[in-house]
Design a protein around this nucleic acid. Structure first.
Lengths: 243, 243
DNA sequence: GTTATTATACTTGTATACAAGTATACTTGA
DNA sequence: TCAAGTATACTTGTATACAAGTATAATAAC
């Protein structure tokens, strides 16, 4: 048996997670990476067997994924929706929407603390790049935006973020892993962009913020093919557990 | 034993609902109405006993309510958050956000079908007023906005709506029941407002739409006291099941 | 060969059982 | 009286059992 990546989702991020959460995280990665194709029908019993857990955590996981819109619970079986180009655009619509809203709030707040916090995260991102740690980089990237959103203390905006976050995180994770392999200089651009974002918050420059957000979006546009490609690479090392 | 309202949520809307959903719907109403006070700690076992179901559907319900931000799942027990003035404002922030987004999309679409559909719903609302049916009125009111949102076919905006909807629905339900009692002429204003909304969509008049949305919001602002009052009235007829 | 009907192997939803962990209260020792 | 430790009555998370419903396949009737 060859050395293989058993799980797509970083195990160290699951230290305190329940079995249900683990199933949700891993299943989500498999769906977003394309390992499980859109249209596939998932069975609670089969998933329970695959993940060596009972149906309870599987049910929990399916409910979570359904609320994130990447599967659809039907009368018999859960149908995989996945992330096509359309869904990714939609997610960025929502991100643009909420981050713009958040920015308007920030414009009327003291943001020096936030700026400091964001600068720290940016440094972390740079270190992650230096050591080619795609997972850590993704983590800090997501944290960057979450930190901004949390700063305005709006529970229902945070609710939207919480719903979006897992899918975003998985997508970014897969995307970054691919880019560390063959598009290494993407990262200077990403870092620049985040610097722009911080600057926009510091100077409360709305246009600059919109610009950097859009740039961030353009940066991810058309990256779905990359995702498929990275999936190909990953699945080569994955042991298929089909009996 | 006096004639009493056993459940706050209309039972006829639960015809096909699972036990878990029923618990979620009813618990949500009890929380939003204030019957269960903010800060209360809910126990799975106690809820299971209260609703005469097992822990499985109760767990399901708590997960749902937690994702809606009206309870918070902690290590031991679920803490009730509820809806204060702040939360209601936040919900309307989000509604404003998504409905504005939706309107921008509608402005680039054929909307004659939608306008017809909305007109129908508006007529339904008028009938509901005529027959003093607060529940039916609330249902059509929520449906009105959902119909607009569904029209743009945006799965992630719909996801936000789906997360918001149950809380909105419960809130509107309670609010309308109260107003049917002592603020009957509020309804002419609400109808007018919805007519304005339809007109805005028909003529693609952005400013008119924003205006009617804000008016709709102002209309609900400061109505939390009404809610408490209506709760007082309701709970008078509720049989307390505390043994 | 085609249609109806019955069997079977699935599905979900709910109840219950159990393991492991945590707070509260009660001892026991000083 | 107070501190430390232990017992107990909770809590959650997971596994399993079972009922009720649904699609698929096999059989029977024509």
């Amino acid at each position: 048996m060859s050395e293989s990546r058993e799980f797509l989702y970083p195990e160290k991020w699951l230290s305190k997670a329940s079995a249900g959460d683990r199933v949700a995280y891993e299943l989500r990665m498999q769906i977003i990476s394309g390992m499980i194709e859109s249209g596939t029908i998932l069975s609670e019993n089969k998933l329970a067997a695959d993940f060596s857990v009972s149906r309870s955590p599987v049910r929990e996981a399916l409910k979570i994924l359904a609320s994130e819109n990447i599967i659809r619970l039907e009368r018999m079986g859960a149908v995989v929706i996945g992330l096509s180009e359309k869904e990714i655009e939609e997610i960025y619509d929502v991100r643009l929407l909420i981050e713009t809203f958040v920015f308007e709030r920030l414009a009327r707040m003291e943001t020096s603390e936030l700026v400091k916090e964001l600068s720290k995260i940016l440094e972390m991102m740079k270190v992650a790049i230096k050591y080619c740690d795609a997972d850590e980089f993704s983590f800090q990237d997501v944290l960057f935006h979450e930190t901004i959103i949390r700063a305005v203390n709006h529970s229902y905006i945070l609710m939207i973020w919480n719903n979006l976050k897992p899918v975003m995180e998985s997508f970014i994770l897969l995307s970054m892993r691919g880019r560390f392999k063959d598009k290494y200089d993407d990262f200077t651009r990403i870092i620049n962009n985040h610097e722009l974002y911080i600057e926009a918050i510091r100077t409360k420059d709305r246009n600059l913020m919109i610009k950097s957000l859009h740039q961030n979006f353009d940066d991810v546009q058309g990256k779905v093919e990359d995702l498929w490609r990275s999936q190909q690479m990953l699945s080569k090392g994955v042991v298929q557990e089909n009996d």
